[in-house]
Design a protein around this nucleic acid. Sequence first.
DNA 1: CGATATCAAGATATCGATATCATCGTTGCG
DNA 2: CGCAACGATGATATCGATATCTTGATATCG
Lengths: 321, 321
Amino acid sequence: MADLAELAGVSKITVSRALSESPLVNAQTRERVQALARKHGYKLNVSARNLRLRRSHTVAVIVEMKPSSERTMWDPYPLSLLGGISQELTSAGYSVLLTTRQGASNAAVQAADGLILLGQGARQDAVRLYDKLGLPMVVWGAPEEEGGDNHIVVGSDNRQGGIIVAERFLSIGRRHPVFIGNPDHPEMAQRLFGFVDELAHHGIKPLLLRRGDFTLESGVDAVRSLAARKVRFDAIFACSDLLAMGAIRALVELGQSVPNDVSVIGYDDTPLGATFLPPLSSVRQNWQEGGVLLARKVLAMIQGQSVQSQTMATTLVVRAT
Amino acid sequence: MADLAELAGVSKITVSRALSESPLVNAQTRERVQALARKHGYKLNVSARNLRLRRSHTVAVIVEMKPSSERTMWDPYPLSLLGGISQELTSAGYSVLLTTRQGASNAAVQAADGLILLGQGARQDAVRLYDKLGLPMVVWGAPEEEGGDNHIVVGSDNRQGGIIVAERFLSIGRRHPVFIGNPDHPEMAQRLFGFVDELAHHGIKPLLLRRGDFTLESGVDAVRSLAARKVRFDAIFACSDLLAMGAIRALVELGQSVPNDVSVIGYDDTPLGATFLPPLSSVRQNWQEGGVLLARKVLAMIQGQSVQSQTMATTLVVRAT
DNA sequence: CGATATCAAGATATCGATATCATCGTTGCG
DNA sequence: CGCAACGATGATATCGATATCTTGATATCG
């Protein structure tokens, strides 16, 4: 910038002002300086500006990335969220700093203007840790009881997701529904509650089949155990598309017809489920939009606005099952 | 840091040295300063340090994220790469700055110490643009002819991927293979070349079926067109699992048996393919490892070492098709 | 005992930008 | 003509860390 100043025959400040479109500088001067800057390939030093302005124009996104077979690693889930976040933050002139929890002791995270936490569903301790940093923070997941924390929560409305599945089952005359999933996970618990409550209005009590992981095998296994126990059921609400697909596979093995004998609805509306044979009915969450919302909320918090937690509606995609 | 200095009764420099484990400071003093820092929750100002040291300890990862239904958006592909990258960079004390191409005019990218480009396969113009920044840069994809560019390329060995598929088809006695994919894409082209060359050794010339996108429909359509033209074929190498699955679906419709009448092999070994019925045979690339490799290369370049382009071997996962 | 090596710590300059206050010439108005 | 207002630009200080050069005290040696 000093060099540019010399070239243009003005002072550094004038250059700074010219490049930042300040109205304090004459239009001609501004043009001249900008032309010189382009010509010589001038690059703003972001560190210097950040230092001076005491902000980094950066939001840290902390992702739970398990190398296991659990969802986060390969589902469309986090990537679409990231897409939405990245799109929104970038267009607002912010940068996205991506970290996993392990590396998050990293000084760079503290330097961020805000934080977004993804996939921390089951780890409230981690959330609380970050909350202590005192940065604007938005968490993706199910809202907690308020504990005087500073962050807000954005997520899809899992309770409502459970309700619409219940409504669907009721509307097609199912009377013996089963829920497969892991209620220890806050998001899954909400789905279960919505499901149970809605069915209760009609005097129906679903069977809960607790399964810790979301693999295909787990779904197969669940249905087999039902058959072994000679339980009567005509509808299955599975907490993930994989579970649902496993369930269907087991049903077919047992000679049951889907959806004639048993209706099955999955969760997440993955491409995997959509291309399954038969194409899977599933509850869809709009991840991309969720990402955008997450980003908007952090930005608002950074600007000091008061911001509320929010849940996003889900929709039921009815396909063949 | 000035405050800490006063508290500890030493100068700022001493504090700086104590916190950075410099041997220039007495062990006792160091302990004392570090204890004070912990107690008062001192946070290093990253911008200031970066300014002074003239480096950002940041690597920018630029992802091609199309909102379309094409692969990058939801495949395990970029996320696993990102996982590997993130893991490796973070443990080396670097931060990952995530950007899409649209936002990459962003000043923050220029401030990075290095660049990683993902999913730019078809857009060599974009690659060249970034190359001009003069930063250490590693691109994921197929190696280009050298054009005096400064970057290196890391990717899985697509040519070899094509070869092992050809070998497989030959070993099970297939004589009329078909290739479905888009050879305009450099990575796909390599697969095709490997496939064709290996078959040529045995006097076999595969049929090329050009398909621009990687959707299931496209695969269905491809096989239907083959049938309509009454082409004789007994093996299909599809450039993506989705294409392969579409192809299988169409074959089943046409009353052909997989793999008795026709063998089908996909690419990427997605969970989608693995859970398909019948489970899909596919060429596997180790994304996670690829990410780690990408990261290592950039780090080496940043440290001024001379680094070579590299391709990673793929393996054929034989399932039911 | 004096000269030199060694160790610990401080003073100062610097990285590159911007906020604030100051300066200077010009114009408008009574 | 004189004073105020304004527009354009500049001088200086500052953000928070670290590199480099000094300084001062203590240890070592012939």
